[in-house]
């Protein structure tokens, strides 16, 4: 196996990296770039904890080869907070509605909320059923989902 040079733009910052073909995007983000907000849980694409947004689309970093996303723009949970520390409305909503217990699923959940908002500006017309469908690949073992749906709905009501 030979290393390959790749460029990743993560949270608007450019990174030049040298990776083996079998290195997963998840491990490059967590270990090389030390952005540990993105979580490893099931590793087989069933839980959504490793969700990151690549070129506007939420995908699973645990099933993505780093070499395959060379040149991509990637947003992780760390990229949502502004430089002055202001939280993204979705992050604030999760805090306001106590939609976090152990917190392991939270980065994936919040990124899905952001992606939903990006696809539907202001979350206009979004219903609980839409949220359940959009978030069906994100497992949470603590909250029972109610507070998570409530947090996302509150953003929809406020048009954030």
């Amino acid at each position: 196996m030979n290393k390959k040079n790749i460029t990743l733009v993560i949270n608007e910052k450019k990174h030049e990296l040298s990776v083996f073909p079998n290195e997963l995007l998840l491990n490059v983000i967590r270990e090389e770039l030390e952005l540990t907000g993105t979580k490893y849980a099931c590793g087989i694409g069933e839980c959504g904890a490793c969700t990151v947004i690549v070129n506007g689309a939420p995908i699973l970093a645990c099933l993505t080869l780093a070499v395959a996303v060379d040149g991509s723009e990637i947003t992780t949970i760390e990229g949502l907070t502004k430089a002055d520390g202001t939280l993204h409305p979705m992050q604030q909503a999760f805090l306001d509605h106590s939609a976090v217990q152990c917190g392991f699923c939270t980065p994936g959940m919040i990124l899905m909320g952001k992606a939903l908002g990006d696809e539907n500006p202001g979350l206009k017309g979004i219903t609980e059923a839409d949220i359940n469908n959009y978030f069906k690949g994100n497992l949470c073992r603590c909250t029972g989902y109610t507070s998570i749906v409530r947090a996302v709905m509150s953003c929809a009501h406020e048009g954030k």
């Binding site: 073909p21 290195e23 491990n27 099931c42 590793g43 645990c62 080869l65």
Partner: peptide, 15 residues
């Protein structure tokens, strides 16, 4: 198996 990593080695082509 450990699903955190991709243990097997391979060459990668992007034609």
């Amino acid at each position: 198996s450990n699903t955190r990593i991709l243990a097997c080695e391979f060459e990668y082509f992007q034609p």
